[in-house]
Amino acid sequence: MTRRKADLLARASALSPLSAADLTILCDFLYSRTGMQFGESKRYYVDRRVADRMVENDLVRFADYFALLRATPSEAEQLINSFTINETYFYREEHQLACLSNSILPEIIRSKRPGDKVRIWSVPCSSGEEPYSIAIWLLENWGLVDAYNVEIVGSDIDTAIVAEALEANYSRRAVMRLPPELVERYFAPVQGGRIRLIDDLRESVTFTPCNITDTASVSRQGQFDVIFCRNLLIYFDASARVRCMQNLFNSLVPGGYMCLGHSESMARISERFITRRFPEAIVYQRPERV
């Protein structure tokens, strides 16, 4: 630990916890920007991150920090980045990847010709493991991958984590679910015992910042044939989930598919999707005609 970091941690721990009123103000701010809900039950999580940002800005009063937060978009971005959860790994929920190659893509290409574009969106993408997993899986398991112009996009509200995804530099833990031969084929060792995705794979995925609760931010991404939006809705309340699904519904081409996390369901969120039960997974489809 560097001396400066140790000093910052000591100063942050010395700050008083937020008052109940300040906690409410801060959580309302985060909710309006991200759709994520925080409150008294997550006070320690909130206090720690706000204290870190206050120390970083040489402030000791929350009122002064909140004024800075409201007036400075870059500080709001930094705070939001500190609240995002980016735990993932390669080949997470592998059954959905199998569903993509075995069931979803064969249906999609029925209305396409060789050379046509197939767009796949991974949001949130964290540090890139999920969209890169899609690229590796298709290379290994979809025989028609070279017959179509497959475009994979990864997006996240956390701009710092998007930068990490572009670097594609990982610990060995991130590839614990990958067969060893795939690690050897698609990664190269780098300093510190870490590994980096090979250039061809890094260049196969495009990364963009995106807030999926914000309609304008989502619409800038265009439309997709398949969207992977996994393990995000659990952080939203009912209203934010509905808003999110309205945005993602509009981001699917007619007939496009939505994959949610294993603990998530479209029930009580949106009736606009068709539930599809494939052998590998349950997914949700935008109807061909609305």
Rank of each mutant, 00 (worst) to 15 (best):
A147R: 15
I80S: 01
I152A: 08
E130K: 02
E77Q: 12
I157V: 13
D158V: 09
Q78P: 00
F83I: 08
S101M: 07
E130T: 07
H95S: 15
F90L: 11
A98H: 14
P124W: 00
F66E: 06
S101W: 05
Y89W: 14
L69H: 05
L69T: 03
Y65E: 01
K112H: 13
L100Q: 03
I109A: 06
F66W: 01
I136K: 06
F90V: 12
I134K: 03
P73W: 01
A135P: 03
S155H: 05
V153P: 02
E140W: 08
P131H: 06
I152M: 12
Y148Q: 07
K112L: 15
A160M: 05
S155V: 10
R113V: 10
A63T: 13
L97K: 10
I134E: 04
S127Q: 01
K112M: 12
F66Y: 14
D156S: 07
H95W: 10
S82T: 08
V145K: 09
E94V: 13
D64W: 00
V162L: 02
D64F: 00
E77C: 05
L68Q: 04
V118Y: 03
E87K: 15
D146E: 15
N149A: 14
D64S: 08
D64G: 02
T88E: 10
S133H: 11
W142K: 12
R119Q: 07
A135T: 11
F62G: 01
E75A: 10
D146Y: 09
C125H: 04
G143C: 04
P114W: 11
Y132V: 05
G115S: 04
S133W: 09
S133V: 12
A76D: 00
S74T: 10
P131K: 08
N86K: 08
S74I: 05
C99G: 14
V118Q: 01
E87M: 13
I157A: 04
D116V: 11
K117Y: 05
N149Q: 15
S133L: 11
I136F: 04
L144H: 07
W121L: 13
Q78W: 02
I157R: 01
K117I: 10
L144K: 12
F62S: 03
G115R: 05
T88P: 08
V153F: 11
F62K: 04
D146M: 06
V118D: 04
E130M: 07
N81Y: 05
R110A: 09
E94Q: 14
Q96E: 12
I157S: 00
